[in-house]
């Protein structure tokens, strides 16, 4: 099975603490993937579509997107919708990682084409556990598109 540990992970997360926590958890479970992070939905979309400050630059598309829902400005639901409506980008797995466990959010995200929906565990231990499973599932068991 092809190992995908060298794939780029794109994280959309406005909270610096949550981002730090994610990186910490990555380190703890031995993930060595390159990570690129955006605080806002529009910044992430600019990157993926090579617009704005990324215009004309060579864009490395991520192997996995970890998306927060409640973002300043354009929120995660809108970002998800745009990614999953784009012929090229829709193949990239999107894992929604959010504090919300609202049934409407869950439903909406899967309808928009989310590949997985994970509620951010409150404890760090829970968070480590979630990241371990996420790593196993997406980077060891699953075969990702090229």
């Amino acid at each position: 099975m092809e190992n995908a540990t060298n794939k780029l992970i794109l994280i959309v997360e406005d909270s610096p603490e949550d981002y730090d926590t994610t990186l910490r958890a990555f380190k703890k479970v031995g993930m060595k993937n390159k990570v690129i992070r955006f605080e806002m939905g529009d910044e992430c979309l600019d990157y993926l579509f090579g617009r704005g400050e990324h215009e004309g630059k060579k864009i490395v598309l991520p192997g996995l997107i970890m998306l927060d829902l409640n973002l300043p400005g354009t929120d995660g639901r809108e970002v998800l919708k745009i990614i999953k409506s784009d012929l090229k980008l829709k193949t990239i797995p999107v894992v929604v990682l959010t504090t919300s466990n609202d049934i409407k959010d869950i439903e909406k995200c899967y309808q928009l084409g989310a590949n997985s929906y994970i509620q951010k565990p409150v404890s760090f231990e829970g968070f480590i556990n979630a990241i371990t499973k996420l790593k196993e599932y997406w980077f060891e068991i699953s075969i990702l598109p090229k």
Binding site: D14, P72, G73
Partner: peptide, 12 residues
């Protein structure tokens, strides 16, 4: 969006 509680358009 600007009228939604706790919704910001910019980073924290």
């Amino acid at each position: 969006n600007v009228f939604t509680i706790f919704k910001r358009l910019h980073p924290r």
